[in-house]
Amino acid sequence: MLQIEDLTVSYGAVKALKSVSFEANEAKITAVLGANGAGKTTLLRALSGLVHATTGSAKYHGTELIGKKPEDIVYLGVAQVPEGRGVIGELTIEENLRLGGLFRRDASGTKSDINEVYEFFPPLAQRRSKPTFTLSGGERQMLAIGRAIVARPTLLLLDEPSLGLAPLITASIMSFIKGLCHQKGLTVLLVEQNARSALSIADFAVVLSVGEVVIAKDAAQVASDSDLRHHYLGF
């Protein structure tokens, strides 16, 4: 379980996150929703150690994440898929996937995980030795998620996987995430601006507005409350 308590992040005089608290349950999908600038990405970056939180704590399985470096947090079973399909365009697809498992000790396990990703996403297998920039947006997103799987995480942080993707592709990525969560018992923190598709797979929803948690409810409740949707999520 991921427990976030009183987390505050400031850039200079600007507070991007103001004392955010919520919990993400084991083997469930928790969606973090909100408009641009609500602090969603900052939240993920604070959890993965890319930005320094001013105060507060975030414990995963009881271990404090805040204050640790990103390269150490990976070892706790936390993997992040960065915004904008964070794959390295100049490396090949295979190399990107290998990178995901580099910190692991078992080379053979990494190898079989990479093959598993290829089974999930056949388009990647066909072009494994091509540079990543030859892939389409949706394929890159698959690769980014695939790479995170190779790291064999227990907690997956996803930053706007639907960004810039066609609705059909978004839907297939979302259902893949849901399947992953169920099959592997992954805990997923899904940051999305596309609230509709995120709510379609999420178990729990947290809505951020200007750095503050305004709603933290079951996803189904949020999805069925039309006032709330209109007010905060714009659909």
Binding site: P70, E71, P82, G86, I88, L99, G100
Partner: peptide, 24 residues
Amino acid sequence: TSLGLKMRAAAFSPEIARLLGVRV
């Protein structure tokens, strides 16, 4: 070698490399 891969990842995209446990 994985060392070479880590070096290239660190050069191309330090932030992603760090997220993957590479000591950039």
